[in-house]
Design a protein around this nucleic acid. Structure first.
Length: 367
DNA sequence: TTCGTTACGGTTGAT
DNA sequence: TTATCAACCGTAACG
């Protein structure tokens, strides 16, 4: 790459910087929604923020559907349906009625509310469970004893389900129409997995001045100001933690590394032009933990109450929820539900280094 | 001109 | 540790 090219990311036809495969920064997503609510047409938003109109359309459509500006949870595998809870119930059913059929077990799982129609195991899965995990019931419960030995206090099944709150009207919402007037649960409506908490526009609007102030640094990637912002986001905005399995890491972290060009937008005037910035850190000395969306180790230790200690440390920000109600009336219940537990298991920060492969200015063909 | 849709190349995280 | 898979992303192009 040459010096004139962004070290990371690409430039779209409108001159905006983007990183292929990665979501736009929340500041821009937020701005898109804000401008739309001011009555600005999507095509104008697209031009002003230098984001493709398809993207604008998608973000606005999602916002209208879900009330969230945030991207979906990226990566991961589909949650298993044969959770420990389900296995436990299947075992119970089998113990009570050794002659029970798999389809009967399936019906009972539904009837008892252990599963819903979206996550109930198939008959074949139940058969497999019976065969592999339960087997001869007379050989009592190796699974249970094992589990209890290793997790004397942990309600592992509960935690599992907690993390893998599978989309369903019962559990965590999902791509299921919500009853009119009924707040979508967990902010997952339209989202394949649970959504982070406090994702309403106003929640983020509440910190927008900080975003714009901080993001505006022309050298946002490794400056005292950025460090301050990074620290700030981690300490103050855990509420927006975007955790794994639908509750990903902090999406606001993105802003630290990824400013977007935006001309003519007063409130985002601090964005720098695409040609004059790099969306990601370019210099090697930057801490790997400073890279995209990666919390600092300190963040794990002191910033987050990921561990289930007393109360609900995994939703440490419910106090902010009320502020989020202004934009979308249905936010409340959703977000209250949304501050679910999650685990923060950020892997190596190498991922964004791969972006350097795409450090060329792309798609600069004449429009 | 505007906007919804979709193919595409990409990233991510669980398995 | 690596590969695979299926989710997601934004862009560009089409209609």
């Amino acid at each position: 790459m040459s010096a004139s090219e962004p070290a990371f990311g690409e430039v779209n036809q409108l001159g905006g910087v983007f990183v292929n495969g990665r979501p736009l920064p929340n500041a821009i997503r937020l701005r898109i929604v804000e401008l739309a609510q001011l009555g600005i047409r999507p095509c104008d938003i697209s031009r002003q923020l230098r984001v493709s109109h398809g993207c604008v359309s998608k973000i606005l459509a999602r916002y209208n559907e879900t009330g969230s500006i945030l991207p979906g949870a990226i990566g991961g595998s589909k949650p298993r349906v044969t959770t420990p809870t389900v296995v436990k119930h299947i075992r119970t059913y089998k113990q009570r009625d050794p002659g029970i059929f798999a389809w009967e077990i399936r019906d009972r799982l539904l009837a008892d509310g252990v599963c819903d129609k979206y996550n109930v195991p198939s008959v074949s899965s139940i058969s497999r469970i019976l065969r592999n995990k339960i087997g001869n019931l007379s050989q009592h419960s190796h699974y249970d004893s094992h589990k209890q030995h290793h997790h004397p206090n942990a309600h592992s099944a509960i935690q599992y389900n907690h993390i893998y709150s599978y989309p369903s009207p019962i559990g965590a919402g999902g791509k299921v129409p919500t009853q009119p007037g009924m707040a979508p649960i967990c902010g997952t409506m339209g989202m394949p997995r649970t959504w982070p908490s406090s994702h309403s526009v106003t929640d983020i609007l509440g910190i927008r001045s900080i975003i714009t102030d901080q993001v505006g640094d022309t050298s946002p990637y490794h400056s005292p100001k950025m460090d301050e912002w990074t620290s700030l986001t981690r300490n103050s905005f855990q509420s927006t933690q975007h955790m794994i399995n639908g509750l990903e890491k902090s999406p606001l972290d993105q802003e630290v590394k990824y400013s977007q060009a935006a001309s003519g937008i007063p409130t985002v005037s601090s964005f720098v032009a695409a040609s004059g910035m790099t969306p990601y850190p370019t210099s090697a000395p930057v801490s790997p933990y400073m890279t995209y969306g990666t919390a600092t180790p300190t963040g794990y230790v002191t910033g987050h109450g990921w561990q289930h200690s007393a109360g609900n440390p995994l939703s440490p920000h419910n106090c902010d929820l009320t502020a989020s109600l202004a934009f979308k009336g249905m936010q409340t219940a959703r977000e209250a539900e949304d501050t679910k537990s999650g685990i923060q298991t950020r892997k190596s920060p190498q991922s964004y280094h791969t972006a350097s492969r795409h450090g060329t200015v792309a798609h600069m063909q004449s429009a």
